[in-house]
Computed example of a mutant assay.
Amino acid sequence: MAYYKPQQIAEVTVENGTKKVHSRLVTVLVLGFLGGAFISLGFLLNIRVVAGAPAELGSITNLIGAAVFPLGLILVLLAGGELLTGNMMAVPLARIAKKISTWEAMKNLILITISNFVGAVFVAYFFGHIVGLTGSGVYLEKVVEMAAHKLDDSFVQAFVSGIGCNWLVALAVWLSYGSDNMSGKILGIWFPTMAFVAIGFQHVVANMFLIPAAIFEGYYSWGEYLINFVPVWLGNLTGGAIFVAAAYWAAYLREPQDSSVALAAKDQSSQASAVRKQA
């Protein structure tokens, strides 16, 4: 199982961020819808698993829910999808590296925000409300309880929580770029994602599912959701763009260097050739 070193991951991320910005509009919108839906399905799985757990389990229940939530990000990165929090790291890195313009970066983040929201609300309404997976019994109680915790945070608390969330989520995306096979990518995604959920940080796309799911059942309002959305969005952007993208640009890309990805590919090719000769 081959993996890239941090400088190589940085170069791959710049390339991916550039590709995201230059994708066709229909591709961006479709993959953005899928990204929002996939994260929501992971959250729905979390709720269905933990809602009926006995109180005696305490924080172990949160750990169990956190352990199944990464399904959503795995689907985004392996099956295909565009996720706002991941783009908040890859696209700014491409901008810092001067591969794209500021307007192109902003346009991509706006389009993914809208399409992620549509995908998340689709799952919340049709699977949660219409099918009833979040609309009754212990499942409704859990949704309302979790939404209340998100909405209770002040602007500053939600903003800082958003930073912590996307510091971890962006690192999950970063690690997935560091592997060249599916099993390595899943392992790289799993643990940082599980950590942010277990800690309780705020994820703007996950909230696009959770809070509307509660609203559809008659709790809270869209105004309350908007008050939460703004600081979490800004916090997630800060976590991805500053704490991951800018940090690794300063560490690995600020000074021009030979392409380590190309060198790694050359080394792997040489090693494979040597193995064939030995065989």
Rank of each mutant, 00 (worst) to 15 (best):
S154A: 06
C165Y: 02
W222R: 10
C165W: 00
A214R: 04
D152M: 11
V144T: 09
V169H: 00
Q157G: 12
E145Q: 12
A148M: 04
S259E: 07
L226A: 15
G164W: 03
I189F: 04
L151W: 03
G235Q: 07
A241L: 08
E141N: 11
S154Y: 00
A250I: 09
K142S: 09
I215T: 12
T193L: 06
V156I: 15
Y220M: 13
F209G: 00
V160A: 10
V204S: 00
G239R: 02
E217G: 03
I211K: 01
Y219H: 14
M182Y: 15
W222D: 12
A274Q: 08
K277S: 14
G218P: 01
H203L: 11
V160P: 06
D267F: 06
V144I: 14
F196Q: 01
G239H: 03
G223V: 14
D153H: 09
S269F: 10
A195I: 03
I215W: 00
V232T: 03
S260Y: 10
S270Q: 11
V275Q: 10
G184R: 05
S273I: 12
Q271L: 08
L140Q: 01
A148W: 03
S179N: 13
A251K: 12
A206C: 08
P256S: 15
L253G: 12
Q202E: 07
V169N: 05
D180F: 09
V144Q: 02
D180K: 11
A247P: 06
A158H: 02
V205N: 00
E255L: 11
P192C: 09
E141A: 14
Y220E: 10
Q257F: 11
P256Y: 14
F243K: 03
A148L: 14
S176L: 10
L210V: 06
A264V: 07
M194Y: 02
K150G: 05
H203N: 10
V169C: 07
S161W: 03
L151V: 13
V169D: 01
P192L: 08
V197I: 15
D153L: 15
E217T: 00
S183T: 12
F209Q: 01
N181P: 09
A265Y: 10
Y252E: 11
H203W: 04
V261G: 02
P231V: 13
N166F: 04
L263M: 13
A246N: 14
V230R: 04
A250L: 13
A250W: 15
V275A: 12
S154T: 12
L151D: 06
F209A: 04
V244N: 05
V232D: 01
S273D: 14
D153W: 05
L168P: 04
G162V: 07
L253A: 08
P192V: 04
N236I: 03
D258Y: 14
K266T: 13
S221H: 04
K277A: 14
Q202Y: 05
L187Q: 11
F191Q: 02
D153S: 07
I227M: 15
N207D: 05
Y248M: 11
L226D: 09
T238M: 14
